[in-house]
Design a protein around this nucleic acid. Structure first.
Lengths: 234, 234
DNA sequence: CCTGTTGGACGAACGCCGTTCGTGTTAAAC
DNA sequence: GTTTAACACGAACGGCGTTCGTCCAACAGG
């Protein structure tokens, strides 16, 4: 039986066995898409394309797009480092954790938008972070109820400011307009409002539009943390 | 020329001239859809159906769906009543305005979800409400910058808690499961976590899941307002 | 009264989307 | 070597936002 070459049009019909698909790989691919093209570009077809396959193949590993988003959000929570609670420094530790949580979100374009409207996050990393925050608040001497409401308010604030930031740094979704142009435009609009009807808005344009690094976030964060501190025993 | 009745199959080919379409009517119809079926059911086709027409007809009055959502959000802001600033009561007035803003959102199912990720609202009612908030804060003696960051933080908090509330009261988007069942389920899940890994979550289940009216919202609101008060002159 | 113009109404279609179904393929179990 | 169960995946379904071309009602000018 001499070996006969197979007809070329039959050989190599599949280049690879493609046995590589997995939850992890899918989430990683989805994160690549979000980082490269933004949340709106994240579709099942687009993720599948990233993996050289079809959209249907994803459903063997992921229930639906919503679950994929949950996995995505939990994945990025993995890179916050949780400090050992130090009762003396609980306020600064809370702030540091909040900064990291926000940083993890804004590091991935407008992914934060997916975090809103997703209910309580139950992923393993989300739970670890929540536990860490509760531990720090508790170390600060706060009551259970204040701790509970506190993490809730902080989580809300972190997510909301992350969304705001991603909108701010992405030209407000409009195309063909740079961020600076858009800001100038808004300033002009605010300035052009009738001063008799909007004395404060027109009078505070500079303060309203001010955007110096993380000042906005830090201001709100301090509001919350120092408010929580007032609930701590003297 | 005696008047001859037109053949019945020719008469009334169109029941009405349908000259009724307008921006106002479209926004009203859209609000009906959201109130009746939720934000996910709000499509251009669905709104058009509500007006006995086709989706294409809407585009003569509304640029696109995004603009329709903006109009919708501004419409519901119309029913907050803005108090005359009273420097003696500025904290309570801010809280009252915040409660109304949140109330307007949660009164329309999960419409709040559309408010996130929409940038700064520029509608007339939104501007009036922002102006009113600035006026009250200013009457409280706060600096321009504190006023500006303050309204921002308050607006973020109002929207975020409204979204949270709408999720909470709508069974977390899952179908066929009542709200109470879902809450019980979450409590069980939290309770079943390994206590050595999650001592605080497992120890605070009751505090974490507590849902007594607007306690959560009022707690966070007081955090923010009393934090702002610390920036006021003594 | 006729005619020309114009702006809104609207059916059909385009290119997306999330998801499902049926079939093909392959690697492990027997 | 054969069976079996899990995975891969093309095709299709119903729905979406939006655009295009056509149609028609109402008005303007003669």
């Amino acid at each position: 039986m001499t070996s006969v070459p197979v007809p070329p049009w039959r050989a190599e019909r599949k280049k690879a066995p493609r046995r590589s698909l997995s939850r992890e790989a899918i989430v990683t691919a989805a994160l690549h898409v979000v980082d490269a093209e933004g949340l709106d570009a994240l579709s099942m077809r687009r993720v599948a394309q990233e993996l050289d396959t079809g959209a249907a193949s994803l459903y063997a590993h992921v229930a639906n797009k919503e679950e994929l988003l949950e996995l995505l959000l939990d994945r990025i929570q993995a890179d916050v480092t949780r400090p050992e609670p130090d009762p003396e420094r609980w306020q600064e530790q809370i702030k540091e954790l909040a900064r990291q949580g926000r940083g993890a979100l804004v590091a991935h374009r407008d992914l934060a938008r997916a975090a809103i409207g997703q209910g309580i996050p139950f992923g393993p990393n989300a739970l670890l972070n929540a536990e860490a925050m509760l531990a720090i608040l508790k170390a600060g001497g706060l009551s259970d109820q204040v701790c509970a409401y506190g993490v809730d308010a902080l989580a809300l604030f972190i997510t909301a400011t992350a969304v705001e930031e991603s909108l701010r740094s992405q030209g407000f979704g409009e195309s063909g307009v740079t961020l600076d142009e858009q800001i100038v435009r808004i300033r002009e609009y605010f300035g052009s409002l009738p001063p008799e009807g909007f004395p404060h808005i027109t009078g505070m344009v500079d303060a309203l539009m001010r955007d110096e690094g993380d000042e906005r976030f830090e201001f709100g964060l301090d509001l919350l943390v120092s408010g929580l501190a007032r609930h701590a025993p003297a």
